[in-house]
């Protein structure tokens, strides 16, 4: 290492941050409503994600965190549209891409993991079929080669008796197994960016820990970045290097996860942190976000 060159800083989780992979700025998403002004679900949101890091987006349901993820994928539910903003991914402005070019990005360069493993696999096809469909399409592999790769992928995410699982239908697998399958699928085309939307919320606690461990391993790849969406500050603290706190469509606070945890600047962040159960608190009623916010200060346009 020569003098004068800055040492790459280690992140809060001890990872090495690389160059900026995803750069979101001024992102605003609105939903058309009948006989009402459009609903602003995401309002002037901006953040950066470096390779080798995990950036958390935290907030309650309805805070706009999932809509932000959908906007990055350009897969908004009907009625929603991106009004303004820029999304740059690996130097490419995503919002300028034609739909076909954007589709080539999905699954191949940017992959997504959904919240509920019970509903995000197609019930009518076998695991093997669903995994290979994606590889056949993006990587132009033939079925056999794709099947071989699927087998490796399933092994790498810790699935036992791989051949049996490949021939199985989703309903024959447990929730934890399904989430592993979904993660394996997301990894199958070696994407640069993984967007995990509440990947552990629907799982029970022991399985949750196992899946987080798996994601932790995946995050160790310095070329890859993860956007991790959760309502649970505990999980964010465990996984992320940086955190973006969202409330009613806006970013209220952002920064390295350790700093935000120890010295939250915004009352909403403090309220969210207050809702984490701690070991000493057993038997007490958990404070809800709303009553803490109410106790501190009103936040802009409260209903």
């Amino acid at each position: 290492m020569t003098t004068g060159e800055l040492r790459e800083p280690l992140t809060d989780q001890g990872r090495t941050a690389g160059d900026v992979l995803l750069d979101v700025s001024g992102l605003t998403v609105e939903f058309e409503r009948r006989r009402q002004p459009p609903l602003r679900a995401v309002d002037d949101v901006g953040f950066r994600v470096r390779r080798g890091t995990v950036v958390g987006i935290v907030g309650e349901s309805g805070s706009g965190k999932s809509m932000t993820a959908n906007a990055i994928m350009r897969l908004l539910p009907s009625g929603g549209r991106i009004v303004s903003g820029e999304i740059t991914f690996g130097g490419t402005p995503l919002l300028g891409l034609r739909e076909e070019a954007m589709r080539q990005m999905r699954g191949k360069r940017i992959a997504m993991i959904f919240q509920n493993p019970m509903t995000s696999l197609n019930p009518a096809f076998t695991i093997g079929r669903q995994m290979t469909d994606m590889m056949v399409h993006h990587e132009r592999l033939d079925r056999d080669a794709a099947m071989t790769r699927a087998r490796e992928l399933l092994q790498s995410v810790g699935i036992p008796a791989v051949d049996r699982q490949l021939a199985a239908y989703p309903h024959q697998l447990s929730g934890g197994m399904r989430q592993r399958v979904i993660i394996a699928m997301a990894l199958s085309c070696r994407p640069d960016l993984l967007i995990a939307d509440e990947p552990t919320t629907a799982l029970d606690v022991t399985i949750q820990a196992q899946i987080l461990e798996l994601l932790d391993e995946i995050a160790a790849d310095p070329a890859r970045a993860i956007v991790f969406i959760s309502h649970d500050f505990g999980v964010i603290a465990r996984m992320c290097d940086e955190v973006v706190v969202m409330y009613r469509g806006k970013i209220v606070e952002t920064g390295p996860v350790a700093r935000v945890l120890s010295e939250p600047e915004h009352p909403y962040t403090r309220a969210l942190l207050g809702a984490i159960p701690r070991p000493g608190q057993r038997g007490q009623r958990l404070a809800t976000v709303e009553d803490q916010i109410g106790a501190t200060q009103p936040l802009g346009a409260r209903r």
Partner: peptide, 26 residues
């Protein structure tokens, strides 16, 4: 409107495959 259709789109499968295979089959 099912989540597995959204997932198939997020996986970058062509719209024809999504509607005529993934959705229609179900």
């Amino acid at each position: 409107s099912q989540e597995y259709i959204k997932a198939a789109r997020a996986n970058g499968l062509p719209e024809r495959t999504v509607t005529l295979r993934y959705a229609l089959r179900n």
